[in-house]
Each structure stands twice: as structure tokens, then as C-alpha cells.
């Protein structure tokens, strides 16, 4: 399903990034990095229109030729970015929403672990498995 999943801290440095296949990781790092500007733009525009839907899910950030990039920002300004292949047409908005919800739940559970220091890179195996399950459902 997803080819890349990334978690970005509120100060905009990566906490976690996972790609499949792994040999293209640098390219995805760029893709995710580029998406942060779009995320920033979307959040700041929300404040001005009060009648806007203030949802955590930001929807499609931008499409490229091969990939579609989706974004999600928690109330604590932690960003989740999911990259899927454009050729994968079976993925609808609802599925993406579900993936983000799952990712958010996983992140919250991971943060509540007392052995994790907020702001550190994510090394939790449980979180890793959650992400992997989202990437390998084909």
C-alpha cells in the first residue's frame, strides 16, 4: 500500500521514516521534506477562515508523476506524511484516513511509553510493526 511513512517532530526534524523498497530512501526523504512546506501552508491558512473544517487530516498535499503525498498534523504539531504510488487506484480517501488514524493511535501509544523521551527518534518495535502492516497489505 504505502511506499513511505514519515513522522516529523513539531520543530520539523524527522523522528521516523520508513520506506519500501529501502534502496530509494533518499528520494523519499526529499519528497517528505518538500511536503512540509505544503503542510505549513495548510495549517496557517486554517486560522484565517473560522468556518473552515479544523480537521487533523490535511488530505492530498501534492501529486507527482509516480506518487501521491498525503499529510496529517496532530494537535501537538507532529506531522505524519504517507506516500503512496499513483498507480494504486484502490486507495480512496477513506482508506488513507484510516491509515492515518492507525498511525496516530500507534504514535500515541508509543509516546505514552515511559521509556521514550519525547523528541527522540522512534525506535519502538511495536510502532515499527504498525507501520509495516500499513505498507504490506496487498
Amino acid at each position: 500500500m504505502a511506499v513511505c511513512v514519515a513522522v516529523i517532530a513539531k520543530e520539523n526534524y524527522p523522528l521516523y521514516i520508513k520506506t519500501i523498497p529501502t534502496d530509494n530512501e533518499l528520494k523519499f526523504q526529499y519528497t517528505v521534506h518538500t511536503s512540509l512546506d505544503v503542510v505549513e501552508e495548510k495549517i496557517s491558512s486554517v486560522g484565517k477562515n473560522t468556518n473552515d473544517l479544523r480537521e487533523l487530516y490535511l488530505g492530498l498535499l501534492y501529486p507527482t508523476e509516480d506518487y501521491k503525498v498525503y499529510g496529517y498534523v496532530t494537535n501537538t504539531k507532529v506531522k505524519f506524511v504517507i506516500v503512496v504510488e499513483s498507480s494504486n487506484t484502490s486507495l480512496r480517501d477513506n482508506e488513507i484516513r484510516g491509515m492515518f488514524r492507525k498511525l496516530h493511535n500507534g504514535y500515541v501509544d508509543m509516546l505514552c511509553n515511559p521509556f521514550y523521551t519525547p523528541g527522540e527518534n522512534i525506535t519502538s518495535r511495536l510502532f515499527d510493526n504498525t507501520v509495516l502492516s500499513m505498507m504490506q497489505q496487498d
Partner: peptide, 10 residues
């Protein structure tokens, strides 16, 4: 705060 704001809007 992370857990409680999970389902609330921005």
C-alpha cells in the same frame, strides 16, 4: 495531552 487531543479538532 497527546492522547486526549487525538480526536478533537484543531
Amino acid at each position: 495531552s497527546e492522547r486526549f487531543t487525538k480526536d478533537s479538532s484543531r
